[in-house]
């Protein structure tokens, strides 16, 4: 069963007829080929699929794409502005906040929303703010530092 959606992703407008049961994450990855958004679980737990929908971090695996009709979406691919890295992207590199890189896009998207609401978070606020994202590589320490780096920079 299909449905027509019209939405903006990273500033580009898309109009697509899609199967209603396509998850937003699959629409982004498979239809738009924005493969920076990842799928790490099937229970809304891992946060690898985090994107911004109308400016807020959400798990794109826990939405059907049809629910995003009319939305303005930003994915990790949309975080660079005019070729400049987002301070969080820079922070993840500077502070060694990633190893395998799989959880990284989701971490960056979650952290970006966190910083939008709280520009100078404490360490505890950062750690709690990342509750919806699993990383199996880093022990989180340098992810926290990466967020602190970005907070300090902006």
């Amino acid at each position: 069963m299909s449905f027509t959606i019209n939405l903006t992703v990273n500033g580009v407008n898309y109009n697509d007829v899609i199967d209603t049961r396509v998850l937003l994450v699959d629409y982004l990855r498979e239809k738009l080929e924005l493969t920076g958004t990842h799928v790490g679980c099937d229970t809304s737990s891992c946060g690898s699929c985090t994107i911004h929908l109308d400016g807020k971090a959400m798990k794109s695996c826990t939405m059907f794409a049809v629910q995003a009709d009319g939305a303005d979406i930003t994915t990790i691919e949309g975080m660079c502005q005019n070729g400049e890295l987002h301070p969080l992207q820079e922070g993840f590199k500077e502070e060694h906040g990633l190893q395998c890189g799989f959880c990284t896009p989701g971490m960056i998207m979650t952290a970006a929303d966190l910083l939008k609401n709280n520009s100078k978070p404490s360490e505890e606020e950062i750690r709690c703010g990342l509750d919806g994202n699993f990383c199996r590589c880093t022990g989180y320490q340098n992810i926290v530092k990466a967020v602190q780096y970005a907070a300090d920079k902006s």
């Binding site: 924005l34 493969t35 920076g36 958004t37 990842h38 994915t75 990790i76 691919e77 975080m79 660079c80 890295l85 992207q89 820079e90 993840f92 590199k93 500077e94 060694h96 990633l98 890189g101 799989f102 990284t104 896009p105 960056i108």
Partner: peptide, 15 residues
Amino acid sequence: KRVEDNRFIKGEGKY
């Protein structure tokens, strides 16, 4: 700093 990070932080890793 890690060379490989350049692609990962932009979501351009290829899995």
